[in-house]
């Protein structure tokens, strides 16, 4: 059997707030296999985002170790971490984090800019990803000219454009209404069916029900880890809602 894509062992993270230590993660050991769709749940302040940021190499752990695809990320240099963020991980944020006054196409091209892809190929790949997320007709719109759901889809296209092995999404539906949330979840499910590993943070039970596995955090620790045998189908639910709205 293939080794898990993600392995964390007793991962800890401490912050220092005005001299007092804050233990955001107190020893998290999980394994996530390639192709899984995992929802991370837990109350506010339980360490979910801290965990995701470590998985995405946006931050360094205080202790323990983290292996991504067999590579010990906790020992890597800043440039090597940048390369991982660039090529292996696609991050989706709650607040989209698109560059303002910059077209959707250019936003999606951004990761390619940092790995020296020539302009023509950049355009072509960014265009393909935008079409994949259903925004082929919005390439030249700026974020301010797009709805929240559309902006999040641009962000997903950006996360996908460099063909990562892992999509990390920290409350990607937190700023969206229920219907748009369903659409975004349908997109993530579709990606997962195509073989992409997805880790998603949410505090909504309904959103978590689209995943195959739910890991629950409390006070910086994993308190529950269970599988969902029959995840809900987000696409079907979105279609159903659409019908209800039209009726």
């Amino acid at each position: 059997m293939e080794p898990p894509l993600i392995i964390t062992r007793r991962l800890t993270k401490n912050y220092h707030l005005e001299g007092y230590p804050v233990h955001a993660l107190r020893g998290v050991s999980v394994e996530i296999g390639a192709g899984e769709f995992v929802a991370v749940m837990g109350p506010s302040g339980s360490g979910k985002s801290t965990f995701m940021n470590l998985l995405g190499c946006l931050d360094r752990p205080s202790g323990g170790e983290y292996l991504l695809a067999g590579e010990r990320a906790s020992d890597l240099s800043g440039d090597a971490l940048a390369a991982i963020r660039n090529r292996r991980v696609g991050f989706v944020f709650q607040n989209f984090n698109l560059l303002p006054r910059t077209s959707a196409l250019e936003n999606v091209e951004l990761p390619l800019l940092y790995c020296g892809v020539p302009a023509a190929e950049r355009h072509q790949r960014a265009r393909a990803k935008l079409e994949e997320v259903g925004l082929g007709d919005r390439m030249h719109h700026q974020p301010s000219q797009l709805s929240g759901g559309q902006q999040q889809r641009v962000a997903i296209a950006r996360a996908l454009v460099n063909d990562p092995v892992l999509i990390l999404a920290d409350e990607p539906t937190g700023a969206l209404d229920t219907h748009t949330s369903c659409e975004v979840m349908a997109l993530l499910q579709q990606l997962n069916r195509g073989g992409m590993t997805v880790v998603l943070v949410t505090h909504e039970q309904e959103i978590a029900s689209f995943a195959h596995r739910v890991i629950s955090f409390r006070d910086g620790r994993v308190v529950e880890d269970h599988r969902i045998d029959q995840p809900n189908d987000a696409a079907a639910m979105a279609a159903q809602r659409q019908q209800e709205l039209e009726a």
């Binding site: 946006l58 800043g78 940048a82 951004l110 940092y114 790995c115």
Partner: peptide, 14 residues
């Protein structure tokens, strides 16, 4: 600063 953070998040080196 946020723009810088985002650029780093998608792979910009220092």
């Amino acid at each position: 600063t946020r723009e810088i953070g985002l650029r780093m998040a998608v792979g910009a080196r220092a």
